[in-house]
Design a protein around this nucleic acid. Structure first.
Length: 316
DNA sequence: CGTCTTTGACCGGCGC
DNA sequence: GCGCCGGTCAAAGACG
């Protein structure tokens, strides 16, 4: 019924996949219903996604992906996927140099965003909470894109970090985030939060593309001759894209709270995803601790702030 | 008429 | 053991 980025009856996001709604529920702690979708590109595709409005900012949609696609992707999805792979590998090589995150908000290497989508290997967030040391959060395989003039930041939580990357356990660190909605909503005035300029934007956390077998099998490298230049460009573009969203703070806090909040005693709805992700982050496979069903679940999270063209999300 | 959405019911996990 | 909650199912209605 509703679309995130346009299109017809069968929900199709800019990820190129088709989705069919199979359920809707009112989740505790959020007055807005959560919608459940299945990938319809293949009858046997196990991929599911959940779409829910951000409780702090009703104009933002939070989408969570689960599972891996077991079928070829449409051209549009493949295109995005290839971009993801290439950019990710670029960042991959860059991150291997242990480049520190920018102190203010996020680190994002780059390339020209004019082509619509640039996927990053990772995004790092520093939440300065004086006088305590700032907290650094790291998202692997993230991306920033500008679809239809809508800046998009993608934090892909579905894929494990490269084995040679000694990322801090980024997810476990989210337990440092405030878990109350009041903290989240007030974050806009806190030094721990990013500040935004209002503009039409499109903010995304997570994405299913990296789950596609085709992506995983694709060559992980792309020739980049000037990593430093690209890095600076993307960093600027990423910062601009993210800072253009006025709702990022509340959305991020809310999303992360719901996603991994269980670490801090929050609601347990994100336990599966949070658990799997934190396991990946720590370089462990969760298989020994989860059942086969849960093993199939890999989480990724998307936030969709207001869009001029997007129709309503799950009805309130 | 086929496909998709809606929505109430059902089921399983988890905390008390 | 019970109740709460999230996730899924499936029948009915809507739409093209």
């Amino acid at each position: 019924m509703y679309e995130i980025v346009g299109l017809g009856k069968c929900t199709q996001m800019n990820d190129g996949c088709q989705w069919r709604k199979y359920g809707q529920k009112i989740a505790k702690g959020n007055p807005c219903p959560r919608a459940y979708y299945r990938c319809t590109l293949s009858p046997t595709c196990p991929v599911r996604k959940q779409v829910q409005r951000c409780s702090d900012d009703m104009s933002i949609l939070i989408t969570t992906y689960e599972g891996n696609h077991n079928h070829p992707l449409p051209l549009s999805a493949t295109a995005m996927a290839s971009t993801t792979s290439a950019a990710a590998s670029m960042l991959h090589s860059q991150s291997s140099t242990s480049q520190p995150a920018l102190p203010t908000s996020l680190t994002a290497p780059t390339a020209s965003l004019s082509t619509s989508t640039t996927h990053l290997h990772a995004l790092s967030f520093n939440f300065s909470q004086n006088p305590t040391p700032s907290h650094h959060y790291h998202f692997p395989n993230s991306s920033i894109s500008t679809l239809n003039s809508h800046p998009t930041v993608t934090l892909d939580l579905t894929a494990p970090p490269p084995p040679h990357n000694n990322y801090p356990s980024y997810f476990s660190r989210f337990s440092n985030l405030p878990t109350s909605s009041s903290s989240s909503s007030s974050s806009s005035s806190s030094s721990s939060c990013l500040h935004w300029k209002k503009t039409s934007s499109h903010l995304t956390f997570g994405g299913p593309l990296n789950n596609y077998p085709a992506i995983r099998q694709s060559p992980p490298y792309m020739q980049i001759t000037n990593h430093q230049a690209l890095s600076e460009t993307l960093t600027a573009a990423a910062t601009k894209a993210i800072t253009s969203n006025p709702s990022f703070c509340s959305a991020l806090a809310a999303a992360l709270t719901s996603f991994v909040g269980n670490n801090g005693g929050g609601g347990g709805t994100a336990s599966e995803l949070g658990f799997a992700s934190s396991s990946y982050l720590q370089g462990k496979q969760p298989s020994s601790m989860v059942n086969p069903h849960q093993q199939q679940k890999q989480g990724s999270l998307l936030l969709f702030p207001p869009s001029n063209t997007a129709s309503d999300p799950p009805a309130d």
